[in-house]
Design a protein around this nucleic acid. Structure first.
Length: 672
RNA sequence: GCCGAGGUAGCCUAGCUGGUUGGGGCGCCUGACUCAUAAUCAGGAGGUCGGGGGUUCGAAUCCCCCCCUCGGCACCA
């Protein structure tokens, strides 16, 4: 039994075209393997833990599980709708997964690969808890931008070590966080450097994944903190901590396999523990991981090290899909360059097979894929329909109309197939088999498109529409060849186009087919009135989709503008010259209710400042006090008196309460 | 900055252990045909193979420099 997995979708948002770039090729691959007679288990499931889910659930005021329920069901629905058929689709917040993870972690501990260490972590005194990952917000010590979690994602992009972030604040309540020591657990990743170097040399898969991983391992590995301060997650044995989500998520592959095996009656330990063969230090399992480029590190480094440490067998291949672009621009949910599978694609009524074909056929699996509605329409109408669909339909329709679907009465069944037809079919099949070995799904799909093209050529050059008038027998012979081609095309393209080809298979009474049937001689008949296998994509519909996308991009731009003006960059903040000053003189401005005229020493210079604080303060009590002054405020006249600065004060029900330094400082001290 | 992957006609690409006129598909132009979802078939136009230098009898293919795009640079799910 061979295991194929897909990276677990994070149950924190809806499915978009970026997800499908991994799942659809994986599904295509599995369907091909099955047609070739391999026994395959295809599993996946939701990744349900981690801080983003907890943070978002908190924002919505619901339990994390509720949030997870929502997206878990969403993904299940979307996968079914686009024909990605997993044997099992689990979730990591299930009991079976928790049990598996706990046992796995215990094995890591028992084998001596886990140790504890005290580290300093941000702690919110208000919420009375440690702030893991995305719970902290602060200032990047390198560039001064606002940093989120342990990453300066708005500014320099650097990763921040625990304790490095300046002015940490709790993301939930906004309280200033403090650093407190706490014991955490680390996985001895460094112990696996040589092992990983060896493993990565032998691991199969796409180069984009393997090269990255090798480069990382050659540089420097660090031990890996595998615990977090959260309620939501798998409990770390004996502590009030949960295991880091990236520890428990891949273990999902194992727990889902076990559940799938319960249903299918196979042996999960055979797959994950015994493996298929041993080669030096490595015990290989027959497992292929399909993932996105963003999680190569976890699958090629953490994961094999964990498996090795826990005494499991190791995956044999990691296949990483390239990035997705939308209308030529880098994929971005926040900027509107996104195609939501359900809302944009499925609800608009497009055939899922079209998207499958586009994703598989646009370019090599490893390269960037650009999704454009215009290109989508062109590919579907000009390639899928004009070539493949047209050939199938013209053959079925012709045979049905002129022969009632059965051409065999007029054909001597032996020697009826043309050599060139047989050759073309075998060539296409061989190319597909070879392409799949290299995970080149475009090459595979090009092969059956080329066969369809051959079919059109064959049909055109034999002119059955002329033959039918002169020689029905000859015409039947040509059609026998064409029907043979249709059967081959149905089988060879079925993995990419399962919905449409199932329908076509039905027209010719083809059931339970496999690659062996591709070149096998059978008397193919049209058993029911054929219908068009594909419906054309309408130009108006595409224009509508483009409008929707443009509108979304426009809205995103507006939103970004708005949010930008809400934030102040450090440079903008630096423009403000804020200093501590000592009030040397204070008097009420006559005829005013609120204004007090002050003379403030801001370090060698005395400024006249008018402040609206008379409702809260008497002039007498102000003299001698230290206050905070914005000194480069544009001067303005109030009640005829010029104010050359502004006192900073808290607004309490419309009344000013002055900010004062917490201890004696020299006037002129800069505030920052 | 460092590392990786790329830059081949409007678009997607093959070729890259150097060797006859750089292949194919989509689009475009012309013609043919009508069984077919104006589908199909034949023919054609279109490329200084990112730029520069070098090695060689000969380079898209090897070496050097530069430019551009995308991604990664780790405890972020």
């Amino acid at each position: 039994m061979r295991l194929i997995t897909c990276g677990l979708p994070y149950a924190n948002g809806k499915a978009h075209i970026g997800h499908l770039r991994t799942y659809i090729p994986a599904d295509v691959y599995v369907r091909y393997l099955r047609l070739m007679g391999e026994k395959v288990l295809f599993i996946c499931g939701s990744d349900c833990h981690g801080t983003p889910i907890v943070v978002n659930a908190e924002k919505e005021g619901i339990e994390p599980r509720k949030l997870v329920d929502r997206y878990h069901e969403h993904f299940k629905k979307v996968f079914a709708a686009v024909g990605v058929e997993f044997d099992f689709f689990g979730r990591t917040d299930s009991d079976y997964h928790h049990e598996m993870t706990t046992n796995f972690v215990k094995r890591l501990i028992d084998n001596g690969y886990v140790y504890s260490k005290e580290i300093e972590l941000a702690y919110c005194p208000n919420c009375k808890r440690f702030l893991p990952d995305r719970y902290v917000e602060g200032i990047c010590p390198y560039c001064g931008a606002i940093a989120r979690g342990d990453e300066c994602d708005q500014g320099c992009g650097r990763y921040l070590e625990p304790g490095e972030i300046k002015e940490p604040r709790c993301k939930i309540c906004g309280t200033k966080a403090e650093f407190r020591k706490q014991k955490h657990y680390f996985f001895k990743l460094t112990a696996f450097k040589d092992f990983l170097l060896d493993y990565l040399e032998k691991l199969k898969g796409t180069e984009n994944a393997l090269n990255y991983a090798k480069q990382w391992v050659r540089q420097e590995l660090k031990d890996w903190c595998i615990t977090r301060n959260l309620e939501w997650g798998v409990k770390f044995p004996g502590e009030d901590l949960v295991v880091y989500v990236w520890v428990d998520a891949p273990i999902g592959y194992i727990s889902y396999t076990r559940e799938a095996c319960k249903e299918k009656g196979c042996d999960w330990e055979q797959i994950w523990i015994k493996g298929v063969r041993k080669e030096g230090e490595i015990r290989w399992a027959n497992i292929t991981h399909f993932i996105g480029l963003d999680i190569v590190y976890h699958h090629c480094i953490f994961w094999p090290a964990m498996l090795k440490a826990a005494d499991f067998a190791l995956p044999s291949a990691v296949v990483a899909s390239g990035m997705v672009k939308v209308e030529g621009k880098t994929f971005s949910k926040s900027r509107g360059y996104v195609v939501w599978v359900e809302d944009d694609y499925l609800k608009a009524g497009f055939d899922p097979d079209y998207l499958r074909y586009y994703i598989v056929n646009y370019t090599s699996h490893q390269k960037d894929l650009n999704f454009s509605w215009k290109v989508f329409m062109d590919k579907v109408n000009n390639e899928l329909i004009a070539n493949l669909g047209n050939f199938i339909y013209r053959v079925l329709h012709f045979a049905w109309k002129n022969f009632g679907g059965d051409v065999w009465d007029l054909v001597n069944s032996d020697e009826v197939l043309d050599d060139q037809v047989v050759e073309a079919i075998e060539k296409a099949r061989d190319e597909i088999v070879k392409a799949l070995e290299e995970w080149e799904f475009k090459v595979a799909s090009d092969a059956f498109m080329e066969l369809a093209s051959f079919g059109n050529n064959y049909f055109q050059s034999r002119e059955p529409w002329e033959l039918i008038k002169k020689d029905r027998g000859e015409c039947a012979k040509v059609m026998a060849n064409c029907l043979h081609l249709v059967k081959a095309l149905v089988i060879l393209s079925y993995p990419v186009l399962p919905f449409s080809m199932s329908k076509v298979a039905d027209f010719i009474g083809l059931k339970d087919f496999s690659f062996d049937d591709v070149s096998k001689f059978e008397k193919v008949r049209v058993v029911k009135k054929p219908k068009l296998p594909f419906k054309k994509v309408e130009e108006e519909k595409i224009e509508e989709m483009e409008r929707i996308m443009l509108e979304r991009i426009r809205k995103a731009e507006e939103k970004e503008k708005a949010s930008k003006s809400e934030y102040v960059t450090i440079d903008e903040f630096k423009k403000l010259d804020i200093r501590v000053g000592r009030i040397v003189k204070a008097e009420k401005i006559k005829k005013s209710r609120k204004l007090i005229r002050l003379e403030v020493d801001i370090g060698g210079e005395v400024r006249q400042i008018v402040a609206g604080i008379a409702e809260t303060y008497e002039p007498e009590e102000l003299v001698g006090k230290l206050v905070v002054v914005l000194t480069n405020m544009k001067p303005a006249k109030l009640m005829g008196v010029e104010s050359q600065g502004m006192l900073l004060a808290a607004d309490v029900d419309g009344k000013a309460v002055l900010l004062m330094p917490e201890r004696e400082v020299p006037p002129g001290s800069k505030v920052r």
